[in-house]
Simulated scan of single mutants.
Amino acid sequence: MSDGAGEYPAALEILLVEDNPGDVRLTKEALRTTSIEHDFHVVTDGAEALDFLHRRDEYADAPRPDIILLDFKLPRLNGDEVAAEIDGTKELRKIPLVVLTGHPAQDDVLGIDELPVDAALTKPVDSEEFLETVRSFEQL
């Protein structure tokens, strides 16, 4: 995620997988207040996320994300199914995967701690918490 000198790439490629338009808007606003230059891509369900990540169909020219923000409850394919596919694909496995949750107290109930994820953020996304999370991946 960094160039080795502690600098972020010219623009961090962020993929948000979220079906709630309000949460998409709030996440965009939170990220807009960060100091990180970024390109923001949004898909609205799990199947579309996998098409983006595997560069299929309309996403043939999609950039490889530097970080994936994944809602847990999605149409077509749930977040756990998307996470399992990412974990099972060598070229995707190294991308930091952050689960977005509306109820952090329910993480154990939802099984988030058992998924192949790198972090979890509570919705709506807080810009400072997002920055901390991104910085934690610098050593990856």
Rank of each mutant, 00 (worst) to 15 (best):
D3K: 09
A5G: 00
A5D: 14
A5I: 03
E7D: 13
L12T: 10
I14V: 15
L16D: 08
P21W: 12
G22N: 09
G22A: 10
R25S: 15
K28A: 15
E29C: 05
R32D: 15
T33K: 01
T34Q: 03
S35Q: 08
I36R: 01
E37R: 15
D39Q: 14
D39S: 11
V42M: 03
T44M: 11
D45K: 02
A47I: 10
A49G: 06
D51P: 01
F52H: 01
L53Y: 00
H54L: 11
D57V: 01
E58H: 09
Y59D: 10
A60H: 11
D61G: 07
A62N: 01
P63W: 10
R64G: 07
R64D: 13
D66M: 06
I67D: 04
F72I: 15
K73A: 13
P75S: 13
R76D: 13
L77P: 00
G79L: 13
E81H: 12
E81P: 08
V82E: 10
A84M: 05
A84D: 10
E85D: 12
I86Y: 00
D87R: 06
T89Q: 04
K90L: 12
E91A: 09
I95F: 08
L97I: 00
V99E: 01
L100S: 02
L100H: 02
L100N: 04
G102T: 00
Q106L: 14
D108V: 09
D108S: 12
V109Y: 12
L110D: 14
I112M: 08
D118I: 02
A120H: 08
V125N: 05
V125L: 00
E128N: 14
E129W: 06
F130D: 04
E132W: 09
